[in-house]
């Protein structure tokens, strides 16, 4: 079983890694690149804890083969904050107590970022359906949805004043 060499851009940085043909992007992020912020909750695309943004699209990294990311840009939770400054979504999750155990949080934040990139002014219902692929067992989603809508409002305000 020979390993394949793949080159990609992860969180803005060029990376190269070797992977077995059956390894997923999640396996490589966690085991080869030591970016363990993306979590494995199911390995079958049903929980969203491994969500990353690949070439602008939200994906479950457990459903992407590592070799598929050749030449792609991958954004993970580790790249969401700009240096030492939290992304507004991260800050709003903290402000609204939108996490309890925190295991689903990285995936939810990446999914929320993709939502707000695509739709800066989502309704509650749009946010709920967009995030339906991200299971949270602790919060009942109430505070997560409030945090996302609040972050959206702040980002819109920022854009206006910019």
């Amino acid at each position: 079983m020979s390993k394949q060499r793949t080159a990609a851009i992860v969180n803005g940085d060029p990376v190269e890694f070797l992977s077995d043909p059956g390894q997923t992007l999640l396996d490589v992020l966690r085991d080869e690149l030591h970016l363990t912020g993306s979590k494995e909750g199911c390995g079958s695309g049903d929980c969203g804890a491994c969500s990353v943004i690949m070439d602008g699209r939200l994906v479950c990294s457990c459903l992407v083969l590592a070799a598929e990311v050749e030449g792609c840009r991958v954004e993970t939770i580790e790249g969401l904050a700009a240096g030492g400054t939290l992304h507004p979504l991260q800050q709003k999750f903290l402000d609204h107590a939108a996490l309890q155990c925190g295991f689903c949080t990285p995936g939810l934040l990446m999914a929320s970022k993709a939502l707000l990139d695509a739709n800066p002014d989502p309704t509650e219902s749009e946010a709920r359906y967009w995030l339906a692929g991200n299971l949270c067992r602790c919060t009942g989603y109430d505070k997560i949805i409030k945090a996302v809508l609040d972050a959206a409002a702040e980002l819109r305000q920022d854009r206006k004043s910019a």
Binding site: G48, M54, R57, L63
Partner: peptide, 9 residues
Amino acid sequence: IGSTQVQGR
């Protein structure tokens, strides 16, 4: 078909 994540693929 599936979630937003699945829709991306």
